[in-house]
């Protein structure tokens, strides 16, 4: 197993108290696996992604562990994490458009970054990878503002994977792109995996049909918890959790043409995570809710690799 996350809890400190954005999540990502992380806005996808590489100042590691290739990630310790960043875990940020220092030529910035991390810049390899994403070598001589949005996105993808990390986190990297570019990005990511630039990947998006195109496994989160996790096909064709079913049924024709379709259309809204109610968090919106749902449903492996947190599964 490349990544093993166990009962991970990450909270946001706020004036009103702690927002329990990630409230006990357990899952695994295998070697070479692409895990698609889906769920509606605010369910904790970004929080999970950030926890694995760099928490921001308001986040607090409230419990649980994350293990990468057998080594425990010191996720609460910003300094200790540095050793893992870029080499073991890397990220393609959501803000690829502004991720590069605007006042440095890209090539020079990459060089300085690599040297600062104690890695010898390998120009030939860098250029090979630029070829792969169809960027001209001259981008290295340019400033970020001289690149189009799509070029910046590809450049950041190349930079992030330059040290062949074991795990890559891609958070919402396709949201700002048009459909054909989204597909190209998805293809590039799978190609990166095929060529061994990254071993496994957590691919975060709202868009379950895009996830379906590239992910081996899909994990659906709801209000800071895991709702369902299963091979992509299973999630799309035989979902067990009522929430996943609603998500899937709101897609007209899964995974084929309507890849710009967003998750929407489930009445109601998720509970506030400042002080979440006991029991199943989907209870208020669940058409199948019954008495037992006042108790929290544990995640159960209903079939090999298929985990569901629901009393009705």
């Amino acid at each position: 197993m490349a990544l093993r996350v166990n009962d991970l809890r990450v909270h946001y400190r706020t004036l009103k108290g702690e927002v329990k954005a990630l409230d006990g999540v357990t899952f695994e990502v295998g070697d070479g696996e692409i895990l698609g992380l889906a769920g509606e806005s605010g369910c904790g996808k970004t929080t999970l992604g950030k926890s694995l590489i760099r928490m921001d100042g308001r986040m607090r590691h409230a419990g649980g562990t994350a293990e990468l290739d057998g080594a425990e990630l010191p996720i609460g310790d910003d300094r200790a994490m540095d050793r893992f960043r870029f080499r073991e875990v890397s990220i393609i940020p959501q803000y690829a458009m502004s991720a590069m220092n605007p006042t440095r030529k890209i090539g020079r910035m990459v060089d300085e970054l690599l040297r600062a991390r104690g890695a010898e810049p390998d120009g030939a390899e860098l250029r090979r990878r630029l070829d792969l994403v169809e960027l001209p070598h001259t981008v290295l001589e340019r400033y970020p503002i001289e690149l189009s949005g799509g070029m910046k996105q590809r450049m950041v993808m190349v930079i992030s994977t330059l040290l062949d990390p074991s795990l890559l986190i891609a958070d919402e990297i396709t949201s700002a792109l048009d459909v054909s570019t989204q597909k190209a990005v998805a293809r590039t990511l799978t190609e990166f995996r095929e060529r061994g630039f990254v071993r496994s990947m957590v691919f975060i998006t709202h868009d379950i049909s895009l996830t379906y195109q590239i992910a081996d496994t899909i994990m659906v989160m709801y209000a800071g918890k895991l709702a369902e996790k299963a091979p992509a096909d299973t999630i799309v064709t035989r979902p067990r959790h009522p929430y996943t079913r609603l998500l899937i049924s709101s897609l007209p024709e899964v995974g084929v043409r309507y890849s710009d379709r967003r998750l929407s259309g489930i009445p109601g809204s998720p509970p506030a995570l400042l002080d979440p109610p006991a029991g199943c968090r989907f209870r208020d919106r669940c058409p199948l809710a019954f008495d037992r749902c006042a108790e929290e449903p544990p995640a159960v492996e209903v079939a090999p690799g298929h985990h569901v947190s629901c009393w009705r599964s």
């Binding site: 590489i53 760099r54 994490m81 540095d82 050793r83 893992f84 960043r85 870029f86 080499r87 890397s90 990220i91 940020p93 803000y95 502004s98 991720a99 590069m100 220092n101 605007p102 006042t103 440095r104 300085e112 970054l113 600062a116 991390r117 950041v156 930079i159 992030s160």
Partner: peptide, 21 residues
């Protein structure tokens, strides 16, 4: 707090480099 600083920090760049930029 700019994006590029966050990105560099996420890639484990030392504080020195980020501060220089």
């Amino acid at each position: 707090e700019a994006d590029y600083a966050n990105y560099l920090a996420a890639l484990g760049a030392p504080r020195r480099l980020i501060r220089r930029y």
